[in-house]
């Protein structure tokens, strides 16, 4: 970007040349950020998810769709370390040691990862926020857990993030229970992203919100994904949400992947009979 900023004269011409050749803000990565290999989780005889494999590349948003009970939340739990799969590997490209199987990491290591390089956005903000702690404290917690011990700077960072998720910074000392549902969800996002994570797990992040609030949240998430180069695994049953947010799609049924591909390809030219049914069942507005 420095090169672009330094250009004078005919800015657009030069940018055009540059952007056409090098194509993206983010250099082509060497490898995937997350490699999931044959992840299987059973609940007794019942299958939670079976033999799930995929790669997630830096800056990519992967949508996981399927109806309730299809195993998408189980999969998300296995990937984010909240559930222990019975088999498989979840390789995460750590900053210091390269790809490491997070399932075989020690608990402290995984927790460290979970509060630095990962974000988890729950469907219900109550599950992801401390309802009795102020908005600023909620956002600042990750920083303090990471060793930040300067009140002024923590507050500054919290305030900056409230601004980025469009919450009036004057409400920094208010508790989340005084916020609307949409604000709570945005606060949860700020609380997670303050540490500059590289991977976000999102479980129905727009579920339970009014349609107009959903739109604003979707736009916010799109901007954050773009500006931070964030990768995300987005679990939802809302096909409209994945169409707008996800680059790629995984369609799950009965714990298994039935179809994967480019989001608009899966939605517009679905191959599997279940996907065709899913797509044709969406109400048109």
């Amino acid at each position: 970007m420095a090169l672009l900023d330094a250009s004078g004269g005919d800015i657009f011409r030069e940018e055009e040349a540059r952007m056409t050749s090098s194509s993206s803000k983010y250099p082509e990565p060497d490898g995937p950020l997350l490699s999931v290999r044959s992840v299987t989780k059973r609940y007794g005889a019942r299958i939670g998810c079976e033999d799930i494999s995929f790669d997630l590349w830096p800056g990519e948003v992967l949508g996981v769709v399927g109806e309730s009970g299809s195993g998408k939340s189980t999969l998300l739990g296995c990937l984010s370390g909240q559930l222990r799969p019975d088999a498989g590997e979840v390789l995460f490209d750590t900053r210091d040691r390269g790809p490491v199987d997070t399932l075989r990491m020690s608990e402290p290591q995984r927790r460290h990862l979970a509060r630095t390089d990962w974000a988890f956005v729950h469907q219900n903000p109550r599950d992801g926020l401390r309802m009795g702690v102020s908005a600023g404290g909620n956002v600042g917690e990750r920083l303090m857990a990471g060793g930040a011990r300067h009140y002024g700077r923590i507050r500054e960072a919290a305030s900056d993030w409230l601004g980025r998720v469009e919450i009036d910074t004057g409400r920094i000392d208010d508790r989340p229970r005084q916020f609307s549902g949409g604000m709570q969800q945005r606060l949860q996002i700020a609380r997670n992203l303050v540490s500059g994570p590289r991977l976000a797990f999102m479980d129905e992040p727009t579920g339970g919100l009014d349609v107009s609030v959903q739109a604003r949240l979707l736009d916010l998430l799109r901007g954050l994904v773009r500006d931070m180069g964030l990768s995300a695994v987005l679990v939802t049953h809302d096909l409209a949400v994945v169409r707008l947010l996800a680059d790629r799609l995984i369609v799950m049924k009965d714990g298994r992947v039935v179809e994967t591909g480019l989001t608009d390809q899966v939605l517009d030219d679905p191959q599997h009979d279940y996907t065709q049914l899913l797509v044709s069942s969406v109400l048109q507005v």
Partner: peptide
């Protein structure tokens, strides 16, 4: 981190 949150609050 949580303990520090208490003091922050």
């Amino acid at each position: 981190g949580l303990m520090q949150v208490r003091l922050y609050e």
